[in-house]
């Protein structure tokens, strides 16, 4: 498992019904591409986050397939609709099988 992997997300705390909100996510991860070599000329094995998903109350907002061309510390920004109060769930899937999650509640007032 990659060291020190910390997911972080930015979601507004509240919204009006049906509002379109912007979500930003950043996860600390080296995204080792598998293209690089170490000092002895050996290929450093690929180790990346290969999938990221965001759902709201169980329904998909976005589902991203990542390749090694995504930069270190993957960043995503996208928009979601908020019809009602609920919970955003965020999931990152690592090549090594590790899964990192975060969630944010939002209140429709």
């Amino acid at each position: 498992m990659a060291d020190n992997v910390t997911p972080r997300v930015r979601v507004p705390r509240d919204a009006t019904a049906g509002e379109e909100i912007t979500i930003k996510t950043l996860i600390s991860h080296p995204m080792e591409s598998g293209q690089r070599k170490d000092g002895d000329g050996n290929v450093i094995p690929r180790s990346i986050i290969n999938r990221f998903t965001c759902t709201f109350n169980g329904e998909t907002v976005i589902d991203v397939t990542l390749e090694p061309a995504i930069s270190t510390n993957p960043y995503f920004e996208f928009q979601a609709i908020v019809p009602e109060s609920g919970t955003f769930e965020f999931t990152w899937y690592d090549d090594d099988g590790a899964v990192y999650t975060d969630s944010k509640d939002i209140t429709v007032g």
Binding site: N4, T6, R8, R10, K24, L26, S28, T72, N73, Y75
Partner: peptide, 12 residues
Amino acid sequence: DFENPGMIFVDD
């Protein structure tokens, strides 16, 4: 700060 990857290390 959210877009600044340097802030990851501040958290650490």
